[in-house]
Design a protein around this nucleic acid. Structure first.
Length: 813
RNA sequence: GCCGGAGUGGUGGAAUGGCAGACACGCUGGACUUAAAAUCCAGUGCCGUCACUGGCGUGUGGGUUCGACUCCCUCCUCCGGCACCA
């Protein structure tokens, strides 16, 4: 008997598989399994192993079942971290990224996956990003890519927009300059055009987790309401307000504008006079320094100042004061809110703090007897507690008496439309996707700016616009690409005069929004992807990945697919039939792994010591794919022990033979194991599948020891090895060849099917409950399971008798 | 605050209306060994018992049911996400 030494054969098989073409002939439908495009961060960590091993097991399993499995791999290679790392170490971002790809590829190959390297894509190669540019131009053509402006985190010294992560205590993470909010011109994608389509229906055909669907729907954040004009006293332009609760219009006691509102700008630059300008100015200046994050944190404590302006309620002509406050966001709705403190908690807080009148439209008559009421309403917004004694006034008009809230809303909507003081509007929380970055390491925006005739797209024949290698990508106050003056110069495609390239690059989420199409035909030159291949293999059967991409990546990917659908490139509107979000492997101390904590588990060391099969098996066994739990090397040794036991079984020569007198119970257990492993792997419950196999090995061990001779036929012994093959592909391959004398790969063999005749045991053990409490177990013949017979047996059981004798009982079988 | 998810032994977890704790880790005892490691065997939710029978037990309190970890309601805790969304 040989000792289990994975180091002696693991690398051999990895090499053999790499060199040999796949002899397997698929007979069933194609399957496309996908894991999110890994980022080229440096090293492969245990999390990568976890996220890729489980899909690999599924892939191997489906392949053995005869499917044509496509399980590709590639790299998300553009992005800020490469630039930052490069700056820190003085390496070029491209060289840094390529070195990482090389390292990671080497590490990936030690995992013994069936990943398809032939279809690999690397997002920073012109062959790939040329099609980013192509898609961008298509979107530009359709009006979906446009130049606009939005408030952004801005560093005045570096002259650059900062991501939220790039702000530390309100200051630029690089130079410490205070970050301000500034309107910045940038490229946008009009994802809002697809807002309605991105909302998941109640019962979609796709199996995406409820949490993801709800999260995305909330993010799209559709709400229906009206936009309403409030005239400003002694000023020409009115203020437009969005509300979903038009029926509370009679409860409006003030108007609040965001600090960025155009009326406030007019006050600031003196176009509009205000007697309160000395208070307004510092407030607005200070509000501009706050990030959205800070506004959120300070949200509970309302701030604001009176502008000295008054507005007119379009429904009842009441004059109300206009305030400015940073709890009103310019990024949602119209940046102006009608204050209804009687029915909105935030307005209520604001009114209380600044002693503004609070009015409720609703009057449950008996609760406010001391107030003179002109009409009984039916509005029900009872969650606001109002101190009526001090503040309640009644503005209701008799016209809306007796109506419910929604009836009143409808009537009011008709009224404002005929009077042309407002219109029905849908509002979305989601805003257009800002895709330009003043950065180097990304896809160049394929546009040309001509001083004479304006902005033009780069003609398709001139794609790709290649990213130049030589630029100064350290922050100098202008975009890195602009530092390469030669590269910037280009002839205007319209007038032919000297013009300039666009110096910005695309957000890396653009790259990853469509990569799964490119996998199918990574070198295709006629378009971004081969539509025939798409028809064959898409949509993706299961898309594995992390929950951090719920509101970013997967939403963008869905948007791109819907856009491709509209272009007629793909015949469906959702790219993935099923989504599975993995959990996290924590450090042994129960905290997230991080270099600073020193709790990082290195997979390379584990592979060296225990072999890839052990690491794979444990990753499958330690928890369900969706769970989060700490790593435990000692628990992993249990997986190693299991594999060693299996190894011993197959190499000792005493556990199975061609002429074995088979143990009938063991054969039944084997067939049950085949059944449950098949079911569990299919349902991606790898942990329980392995538990079932462990039970079989224990049973096999016991039976062999008792009989002191082989108890299973070689044919059956092969079946068990096949069940284990997707989990421990290397050891099973070694045994398959060396011990069982097979010539072709175990991974090309046909997945075993349970023998239905060998699933039933001769006797069945049944629990007996009396009054729902377990009292005994009885054993009955498997052929005699009629109710009467079983109950008779149960009633003769001594323990059961004790509880039933002399008592009335009902029999439930 | 809102939304989503989860609370089961010392630990990871299993059971989705019918024997709670499968399978592992850890721990305890034993075998082997000069010894240790490795390996093997036995035990391992709590209480009680020589032992069997028994009682209790799935975050809390209640409900539905012959029967609840599982379904319904209340509350608590933890994790993840977020948008003061007008």
């Amino acid at each position: 008997m040989k000792k289990y030494r994975p180091q002696e054969f693991e690398s051999k098989w990895i090499k053999v598989w790499e060199e040999q073409p796949d002899p397997f002939q698929p007979t069933k439908e194609p399957k496309y399994y996908l894991v999110e495009l890994p980022y080229t961060s440096g090293d492969l960590h245990i999390g990568h192993w976890f996220t890729f091993t489980i899909p690999d097991v599924l892939s191997r399993f489906k392949k053995m079942q005869g499917h044509d499995v496509f399980f590709p791999i590639g790299y998300d290679a553009f992005g800020l971290p490469a630039e930052n790392a490069a700056m820190k170490r003085g390496v070029h971002p491209r060289d840094w990224t390529m070195a990482n790809i090389e390292t990671m590829t080497k590490q990936f190959k030690t995992m013994a996956t069936m990943l398809n390297w032939e279809h690999m894509i690397i997002a920073c190669e012109p062959e790939y990003y040329r099609w980013n540019q192509w898609i961008f131009l298509k979107m530009y053509e359709k009006g979906l890519a446009y130049r606009g402006s939005a408030l952004s985190n801005w560093c005045e010294k570096d002259k650059t927009v900062l991501a939220n992560e790039g702000i530390e205590n309100g200051k630029c993470w690089r130079c410490g300059t205070e970050v301000v909010q500034k309107e910045i011109e940038q490229w946008f994608l009009k994802i809002t055009d697809y807002a309605d389509q991105l909302i998941w229906p109640e019962n979609p055909e796709q199996q995406w987790p409820m949490s993801v669907r709800v999260g995305q729907n909330n993010w799209v954040g559709k709400s229906e309401g009206v936009e309403l004009q409030f005239e400003i006293v002694d000023y020409k332009s009115p203020v437009t307000v969005f509300t979903t609760a038009l029926d509370t219009i009679f409860g409006v006691t003030f108007l609040v504008l965001s600090p960025e509102h155009s009326i406030i700008s007019a006050l600031m630059d003196g176009t509009l006079k205000s007697s309160e300008i000395e208070k307004v100015k510092p407030y607005v200046n200070q509000a501009q320094k706050k990030t959205e994050e800070e506004r959120k944190i300070g949200a509970k404590d309302k701030t604001g100042v009176f502008t000295s302006l008054y507005a007119v309620n379009p429904l009842n002509g009441q004059k109300i004061p206009v305030w400015v406050a940073d709890y009103v966001l310019s990024s949602y709705g119209t940046g102006a809110v009608m204050g209804v403190p009687g029915h909105d908690a935030r307005d209520h807080e604001f009114a209380q703090k600044f002693e503004l009148p609070i009015v409720q439209v609703l009057k449950p008559a008996d609760s406010i007897k001391d107030i003179k009421i002109e009409a009984d309403g039916f509005w029900d917004y009872a969650d606001i507690k109002v101190d009526y004694k001090d503040t309640a006034i009644l503005l209701n008009s008799g016209e809306y008496d007796g109506l419910t809230s929604s009836e009143a809303k409808k009537k009011l909507e008709e009224y404002i439309q005929t009077k042309k003081i407002g219109e029905i509007k849908k509002q979305y929380h989601i805003h257009d996707w800002s895709i330009s970055r003043q950065r180097y390491w990304g896809t160049p925006v394929p546009m040309i700016h001509c001083d004479d005739c304006g902005m033009h797209p780069v003609p398709e024949k001139d794609l790709p616009v290649e990213l130049p290698y030589d630029v100064d990508f350290t922050p100098t106050g202008k975009p890195p690409l602009a530092t390469n003056e030669e590269w910037m110069k280009v002839d205007c495609p319209k007038c032919g005069k000297p013009a300039m390239r666009d110096a910005e690059t695309l957000d890396t989420f653009f790259d990853s929004a469509w990569y799964f199409y490119r996998y199918l035909s990574p070198h295709y030159t006629e378009g971004p992807f081969d539509t025939e291949e798409v028809k064959k293999k898409m949509p993706v059967d299961i898309y594995f990945g992390g929950s951090e991409h719920t509101l970013g990546h997967t939403l963008y990917a869905r948007f791109f697919t819907k856009f491709f659908h509209d272009l007629g490139l793909v015949p469906f509107t959702e790219f993935a039939d099923r989504r599975m979000e993995h959990g996290v492997i924590l450090g042994p101390d129960g905290h997230r792994m991080s270099k600073s904590r020193g709790n990082v588990i290195n997979p390379d060391d584990l592979v060296k010591e225990y072999g890839a099969d052990t690491v794979r098996l444990y990753l499958c066994f330690m928890m369900p794919y969706e769970a989060t739990a700490p790593w435990s090397t000692s628990s992993m040794q249990g997986a190693y022990g299991f594999l060693r036991k299996v190894w011993d079984i197959y190499t000792s020569g005493t556990y199975y033979s061609d002429e074995a007198q088979e143990n009938a119970d063991l054969v039944i257990l084997l067939n049950k194991t085949i059944q449950s492993v098949t079911r569990d792997v299919d349902a991606i419950k790898m942990n329980t599948a392995i538990a079932r196999m462990m039970e079989l090995v224990n049973g096999w061990n016991d039976a062999t020891r008792k009989a002191e001779k082989p108890v299973l036929s070689t044919a059956n012994a092969k079946k068990f090895l096949q069940l284990l093959a997707p989990f421990a592909p290397l050891m099973t391959e070694e045994i398959w060849h060396q011990e069982l004398g097979e010539k072709s790969s175990i991974h090309s063999s046909i997945w075993p099917v349970a023998d239905k005749c060998k699933l039933k045991e001769a006797t069945i053990t049944m629990p007996v409950q009396v009054n729902g409490k377990m009292r005994a177990t009885i054993t009955v013949d498997a052929t005699d399971v009629e109710e009467k017979a079983v109950v008779d047996v149960a009633l003769t059981d001594a323990t059961v008798k004790k509880y039933t004798d002399g008592k009335e009982y009902k029999v439930i079988y």
